[in-house]
Design a protein around this nucleic acid. Sequence first.
RNA 1: GGUCCCUUCGUCUAGUGGUUAGGACGCCAGGUUUUCAUCCUGGAAACAGGAGUUCGAUUCUCCUAGGGACUGCCA
Length: 511
Amino acid sequence: MGSQNSVRVRFAPSPTGPLHMGGVRTALFNYLFARQKKGAFVLRIEDTDQTRYVKGAENYIIESLRWCGLEFDEGPVQGGAFGPYRQSERKEQYREFADLLVEKGHAYYAFDTAEDLDKARKEAESQGQTFSYGTGSRLSMSNSLSLSDEEVKQKLEAGEPSVIRFKMPDEVVDVEDEDMIRGKVSFKTSDLDDKVLFKADGMPTYHLANVVDDHLMEITHVIRGEEWLPSMPLHVLLYKAFGWDKPVFAHLPLILKPQGKGKLSKRDGDKLGFPVFPLKWTDPESGEVAAGYREDGYFPDAFINMLALLGWNPGTEQELFSKEELIDAFSFDRVNKAGARFDPEKARWFNHQYLMKRSDEELAGLFGPFLIEKGITPPAVDFLSRIVALVKERVSFVHELWDQSFFFFVAPESYDSKVAKKRWKGDVPAFMGKLAVFFKDWNGEWKAEALKEEVSSMIKAGELNFGAVMNSLRLAMVGGSFGPDLFTIIEMLGQDEVVSRIEKAVDELGG
RNA sequence: GGUCCCUUCGUCUAGUGGUUAGGACGCCAGGUUUUCAUCCUGGAAACAGGAGUUCGAUUCUCCUAGGGACUGCCA
């Protein structure tokens, strides 16, 4: 076992495309556990299937985890004492372990072609059954158990393609394991088949590679998705066959789609308009683009917080957790067994909470590029920060700041007709003209409070409807019935701009 | 079909034999606000069904139903 029993966990994705948010959550739970136990978090790339390799996927995975703030201690980029960290680079070692199993009588060679297997499956299917390569059928297939030693030797020497299969015990035994999340889980070997461990192309399958590497890398806890639960007994048997200590397993519940049946997929995101991937991904083959949380404006800590609460809860009413708090509070016995439906609305809410926590200065800095995109030169940081402070509680994303604050940068181009119809009538238009003059002639300090006081007394003196005037004035300033405190806007806009906007409104809406 | 896993408000969930079944998101209503948003208050909303065990089941057991995963020389 590992030196001084320290915890070592790994996240072992396959570089077959962008990392799904479910994968990110798996990485997160591994990370939280490792950090809490002062252990190591390892990234291992499971690229034993050359046919499914997708260019850029590994990079994407690494960048995604970095964006999420899940830094690992060992991995393909920075290396470590247990490298290499790509299975393709560990290729040589697997054959010898597979052979070892054959020697020990726990595995055997099989020569059946893909066509043979296909045929067997179809045949079984036509009889309403499912073909299983295992104790009941292996003697009727082509392998080192059914063939004579001579035949086997001949085939092997002739270089005939062959795979190595695990030999399930002939006697029925119960394979049990204590899962950190599910407790006791048990399978009967009679229900299991002889899985391929080593492929004809010279590469191991996931099952062999994962067990060998987890052992060699001294992984103490295997934390992975529930989709691996059915192969748990095979892995347990593999550890036993090798005579190795097995790690502790934890199978995480799945993340389900917001509506309908099944697990969350890319299609759900397209359909309901939310990302399924941490980062934007452009498929190198088709050029198809998939949205990412980062590009959609989510903060990484909000994303992580939301993910952590999907399947785990602290048992208290706290919902907002920093990464450090998560590390501290996380526990497998508070991870749910049932799959969790993803709720895009709540994801939004999390982001809103995190946006509110950000300082105005930081948000102003993030807002700048959006202004430039609109052709506006961002004002000084302290001024932009004041604007952000006024509107940030109305948005969930930085990019939404524009819709709530555009009027600080440009005069409204149109006026909400419903508001105009309701407010801009009677004595109001004429009064607006007076207001323009009033503001123009104002000699005092240009401050919200003083201006408000003056305008209020003017309204009273003229016996006008307070709401109608205020809303009309707002209409002139922002173009509608929204936005922060009116006189704060007026103060920030400045005397000339305010006068010009009122004149423009009188011009367009009538005076 | 087979194997395994799962089942509390629409959703995420608390609950570990006796609770008015709690919180959050969303939704609705009222209040605050010159508007909108925030905020505050309130509201509707759940133990899948059936048998047991028990003085008493959301909680324990079994069955049924439903959901999910797996069932590749993919991971």
